[in-house]
Design a protein around this nucleic acid. Structure first.
Length: 820
DNA sequence: TTAGGGTTAG
């Protein structure tokens, strides 16, 4: 409309005015004012009274067309009037109209420029604001004033520009203007030069609340929580009262530094000084309580608010979403829409997480569509990353990848999200590939999140050498004392068989939280060092660290791997009685495993029957696994019946039960189970083993003949088998699950993936050096026996990690004592 | 007649 009006000639305009008046005539007071003004416009060649015009046109939504008419006819002579229009459009959020207006003002003054700069800043278009500021300096003959600097300082994107602006401030003598000074303080803090800010602050002749707030929020935004609280303390000592802005700045600091006491005291101050009905304050309180996990307090603040904006709603939604209550979070979202508030970008960020927590694949598509239709996916990286994360968590990793590829800008979090997505869906090789692609982008600098996502992927495929390289970089970045990175490294060394290194690292990292303890206990567990795991648990208690539910999973599983039945039972008891931890299905599964592995199959079954919750597939799976080890076909059949009722999709269980039948030669039943699996469209997970030689991971599938050195590998295996037999090795055909002749059975056993990997290790590493391999499923019993012989013949230490635990072979024996 | 310092995020 505006553009249309600009292209009108005088005749057209005079035709348009009566239409305008006719339109206005339906509205009384405003219309009168408009009528008088526009008559004045028509009859007299004088400047229009814009204030009157504004008031009336604003109500009628007619500012734009009138503005067009007035500009064209040259009625706006005063630069103040036209600049006012720049601000008018900016307040409407229509910065392109502001710019259009701005560009048509021929006699701009500094007020005009200031208005344009701050219009850009207000909507966050900082680079345009900086451009505008530079043009003011370079192309106009005007000088900036003290209104120009605060928005310019807010907009500047780097320290160099910031310092230039500071010079300009000094030259013009605005340094001690409280507004300009606060902006300078904030700018220096933002770019990590808090000491320069502090010096300026100390030198200020006059300080107001804004100066103190700038210091506090500056410290806070550069991550210096302690200093921020320090400034707050000084402020109190000088008798300055906190205003709503101080409170809204400091509350996130309390949350960030986990300082509940300060948070509560500030809330008390808020109530005492009547600040509790300030919107920003309430919103900040909700967020703080949510971070502390005190949802009751967050809800109380929310309930008592007289006015709520979209931030309030987003905050209460995120509070529940981030505290594992997606259902309540979603209920708030529905309420928010019911009161007529439109969700914004951050609402959708929460919704993406809610949908993935609810495992709701159908609605994930709607979220994606909604975000795309609004154009947010292309414009904002946070929502883009949230959508990638949503798909990854739902296991729809191809969609996650597709969204990732389409993001116009990718930051380190986008990459970390995708790497974690692959790793957590068991696709470690893909995770590693993506990480390597990321390393090729020079503009992306890996951070803590990157290490936490890539280290587990390396440890999953047993790439110790690659993992150690990452360890080196972590040390360089001083992140080795970070609890999360440290724990990943402990886990990696443990899973790669380097338990001493894991222990060394464990004693370096902070150990106040149970997280690193859980990792080291679990490491000892999978190595079959049950007593050591129990000792570590006692040490943990001695150091005053409170165990959590994960600690007991690690501990129970450690006991079950080492056959410590009594100790395991005690742990299960202590967990409930002393620590008040209600057992979940994982704990129950460990106990079933504890009894089952030790051969107490009836005890395991009785335990399942006594459970207060419905057993899931893992529970029956544990019993079935135990039946496989101890060859109990009857109980195995019972377990599998129950299993297929709760989970008929997991192919592993079909394999287990068919193994039990094959073991006792019931080939007919084997055939039945297999065809059942086939009918349900399930394919057996192929077994593979991997080995890392010279920084490269080689993967072998059973019977694999595609490896470039396969002939040498099979030669090596033939030689070994001959030597093994002379030492008393007898192949155990019960591990061959096909009904074939004995010759063929021996060949099948020899080409199991674990044996191919071991043979490859023997031919490609120096004699007598240790070999470490990884198997994705459980190691086969015959291979276990064979490896004992191989370790004796080759005088090598052979470490095999399977999906269950470690087997450490040396001099013809295994550390697990054949208990696994 | 324009300005500072403020709450939510992957």
């Amino acid at each position: 409309m505006f553009r249309l009006a600009l292209s009108c000639n005088d005749r057209q305009i005079s035709k348009f005015l009566p239409l305008l008046r006719a339109h206005c005539s339906v509205l009384s007071a405003a219309t009168n004012a408009l009528q008088i003004t526009s008559e004045g416009f028509e009859n007299e060649n004088r400047e229009i009274d814009f204030d009157v015009l504004f008031q009336s046109c604003n109500k009628l939504h007619l500012v734009k067309p009138l503005h067009g008419l007035l500009v064209v006819s040259g009625k706006i002579k005063s630069v103040f009037t036209s600049t006012k229009l720049v601000n008018y459009y900016a307040n409407l959020g229509d910065v392109s109209f502001s710019r259009h207006t701005f560009d048509h003002i021929s006699n701009k003054n500094v007020y005009t420029w200031n208005s344009m700069i701050s219009a850009y800043v207000r909507i966050g278009h900082f680079s345009e604001a900086v451009d505008c500021f530079s043009k003011l300096l370079l192309t106009s003959n005007l000088q900036p004033d003290f209104y120009t600097f605060p928005p310019a300082l807010k907009a500047c994107g780097n320290l160099i520009d910031g310092k230039k602006i500071h010079c300009s401030v000094l030259k013009l003598g605005f340094e001690w203007d409280v507004f300009v000074a606060a902006s300078l303080l904030h700018m220096y803090c933002r770019f990590g030069l808090a000491d320069i800010a502090r010096k300026l602050f100390d030198d200020m002749p006059v300080r107001d609340n804004g100066s103190w707030n700038a210091m506090i929020s500056g410290y806070c935004q550069s991550g210096n929580a302690v200093e921020a609280l320090g400034v707050l303390h000084e402020m109190r000592l000088e008798g300055v009262n906190l205003d709503p802005i101080t409170v809204a700045s400091i509350l996130p600091v309390c949350a960030q530094s986990d300082d509940i006491i300060s948070g509560l005291l500030i809330h008390l101050y808020v109530i005492k000084h009547g600040l509790e009905f300030e919107l920003f304050v309430s919103n900040a309180l909700i967020n703080m309580y949510a971070k502390f996990g005190i949802l009751g307090h967050a809800l109380k603040v929310f309930d008592e608010m007289a006015v709520r904006d979209v931030v309030s709603w987003n905050s209460i939604i995120a509070a529940y979403e981030q505290n594992d209550d997606p259902i309540t979070a979603h209920a708030f979202l529905t309420k928010m829409q019911r009161v007529g508030l439109q969700p914004d970008l951050l609402t959708l960020v929460s919704l993406a997480s809610i949908v993935s927590q609810l495992n709701d694949r159908r609605n994930s598509r709607s979220v994606h569509g909604f975000v795309m239709r609004r154009g947010w996916l292309m414009g904002d990286i946070v929502i883009g990353n949230a959508v990638v994360d949503m798909y990854a968590k739902l296991g729809v990793i191809d969609s996650a990848r597709a969204v990732f590829e389409e993001l116009p800008v990718k930051d380190v979090i986008s990459w970390n999200t995708l790497i974690t997505g692959y790793a957590q869906n068991g696709l470690s090789s893909e995770a590693i590939e993506v990480y390597q692609l990321m390393e090729e982008c020079s503009e992306i600098i890996p951070n803590q999140g990157t290490w936490v996502s890539i280290i587990p992927a390396y440890s999953h495929v047993g790439a110790l050498q690659q993992g150690m390289k990452i360890h080196g970089r972590v040390i360089k970045n001083c992140l080795y004392l970070d609890i999360f990175v440290g724990t990943c490294l402990i886990d990696m060394y443990g899973k790669c068989g380097r338990i001493d290194d894991a222990m060394y690292l464990f004693y370096q990292v902070p150990r106040k939280s149970p997280v690193p303890w859980n990792a080291i206990i679990s490491c000892h567990g999978v190595h079959g060092h049950g007593s050591k795991a129990l000792n570590l648990f006692r040490e943990m208690l001695h150091e005053g660290v409170k165990p959590d539910h994960v600690t007991f999973v690690s501990l129970l599983s450690a006991c079950s791997h080492s056959g410590l039945v009594t100790e395991g039972q005690q742990c299960f008891h202590v967990m409930q009685k002393e620590y008040g931890i209600k057992p979940n299905l994982k704990h129950y599964g460990c106990v079933v495993d504890l009894f089952g592995r030790a051969g107490h199959l009836e005890m395991a079954y009785d335990f399942i029957k006594s459970m207060p919750v419905r057993p899931d597939a893992c529970i029956w799976g544990a019993l079935l696994g135990a039946c496989r080890i101890h060859g109990n076909m009857e109980l195995g059949a019972l377990a599998s019946d129950q299993l297929f009722e709760v989970d008929s999709e997991n192919v592993g269980y079909y394999v287990l039960i068919s193994n039990i039948y094959a073991n006792v030669g019931k080939w007919e039943r084997v055939g039945k189970v297999r065809s059942l699996a086939r009918d349900r469209g399930l394919k057996k997970t192929p077994g593979w083993s991997s080995i890392e030689v010279n920084n490269k991971v080689d993967v072998f599938y059973t019977g694999n003949r595609t490896h470039p050195r396969y002939e040498e590998i099979y030669d090596q295996l033939r030689n070994l088998t001959a030597k093994m037999k002379s030492l008393g090795y007898i192949p155990d055909y019960s591990f061959v699950l096909q009904d074939v002749e004995d010759d063929e059975k021996e060949h099948i056993l020899t080409s199991h993936s674990e044996r191919l990997a071991i043979a490859f290790g023997i031919i490609s590493t120096p004699p007598k050096t240790p070999i470490q391999i990884f198997k994705n499923l459980r190691v086969c019993g015959d291979c276990h026996n064979a490896t004992k012989f191989i370790s004796q013949i080759t005088e090598r230490e052979i470490i095999v990690r399977d999906s269950n635990r470690f087997h450490h072979f040396k001099d013809g024996v295994c550390s697990c004592g054949d208990y696994w």
